[in-house]
Simulated scan of single mutants.
Amino acid sequence: MAFRSRADEVYEQLKRDVADFQLVPGDRFTENEISERLGVSRTPVRQALFRLQQEGFVEVLFRAGWRVLPFDFDQFEQLYDLRMVLETTAIHRLCEGVVRVDHGLLDALAAIWLAPQAERSSDMAQVSQWDEEFHCQIVAAAGNAEMARVHREVTERIRIIRRLDFTQQMRIDATYDEHAKILKAVQRKRGDQAAMLMRAHIETSQAEVRKITLHQVHLARQGGYAPR
């Protein structure tokens, strides 16, 4: 098991805070506030914040602490485009015999997404987590480790915006329906159909992202989203 430093732990916690709307775009804070809240010294906090700064989550303010960066919607557009390329390519690899299909994985995904409507989860945080796992596992199953690595990085960058999508019940319902159609097409090795369905699914999410406002983020912090 890889060694995790205190700075690594702070870094992971602050990323969770952003993803769970405990820290939202525009929020300002100091290193002292973070170190007191997490019960650590300022050194690992500073190391974690510099790492988050490099990844585009926060910025340092001259003599005024730190700030969570506003959403960069142009960047989100580009990340969704990249995600579409990776996931549709993965679908084709799975359906066209480029890799050996892990039927256990498909069965596990089917147990969630092909469940009868009465057994579907309405837990926003749970469905959001399952959604991430669905897409990551599809890419990982395609057998290209570098594709999977890049896809995980994209997933982390868009996590907060995707979670906002799951504050609406209609979007949860649509995700179940769309994932089910994609899975059925993959199970039948209908690559073109599955890729077309995946593209439409991602494009719908991408369109929802364009509608997101900072007001929705603050509503999510006030209780519209309950992190696990």
Rank of each mutant, 00 (worst) to 15 (best):
residue 106 L to G: 01
residue 144 N to R: 14
residue 83 R to A: 08
residue 38 L to G: 04
residue 89 T to I: 05
residue 38 L to R: 12
residue 52 L to P: 02
residue 110 A to K: 00
residue 72 D to L: 01
residue 127 V to W: 00
residue 59 E to R: 15
residue 90 A to F: 03
residue 46 R to G: 07
residue 6 R to K: 13
residue 139 V to M: 06
residue 141 A to D: 04
residue 50 F to M: 09
residue 44 P to T: 06
residue 128 S to Q: 00
residue 61 L to S: 06
residue 32 N to G: 14
residue 30 T to H: 03
residue 111 A to V: 06
residue 43 T to R: 13
residue 37 R to Y: 09
residue 6 R to N: 13
residue 109 L to R: 05
residue 68 V to F: 03
residue 58 V to P: 04
residue 100 R to P: 09
residue 109 L to K: 01
residue 57 F to A: 02
residue 118 A to Q: 11
residue 38 L to I: 05
residue 7 A to S: 11
residue 30 T to P: 00
residue 120 R to E: 01
residue 50 F to D: 03
residue 146 E to G: 09
residue 61 L to Y: 12
residue 7 A to V: 03
residue 108 A to S: 13
residue 69 L to G: 01
residue 103 H to W: 15
residue 145 A to F: 12
residue 121 S to I: 08
residue 123 D to T: 03
residue 76 F to S: 07
residue 15 K to E: 08
residue 79 L to F: 14
residue 92 H to Q: 13
residue 145 A to G: 14
residue 19 A to D: 08
residue 82 L to R: 08
residue 117 Q to W: 04
residue 63 R to T: 12
residue 108 A to R: 12
residue 80 Y to K: 09
residue 68 V to A: 00
residue 140 A to E: 11
residue 66 W to D: 01
residue 142 A to I: 04
residue 79 L to C: 10
residue 85 V to F: 07
residue 107 D to Y: 04
residue 114 L to T: 11
residue 103 H to N: 12
residue 62 F to E: 15
residue 92 H to V: 04
residue 26 G to S: 10
residue 104 G to L: 04
residue 30 T to E: 00
residue 12 E to K: 02
residue 66 W to C: 00
residue 24 V to N: 02
residue 84 M to V: 08
residue 143 G to H: 06
residue 101 V to N: 05
residue 38 L to M: 13
residue 130 W to H: 09
residue 81 D to P: 08
residue 153 E to G: 09
residue 77 E to L: 09
residue 48 A to Q: 07
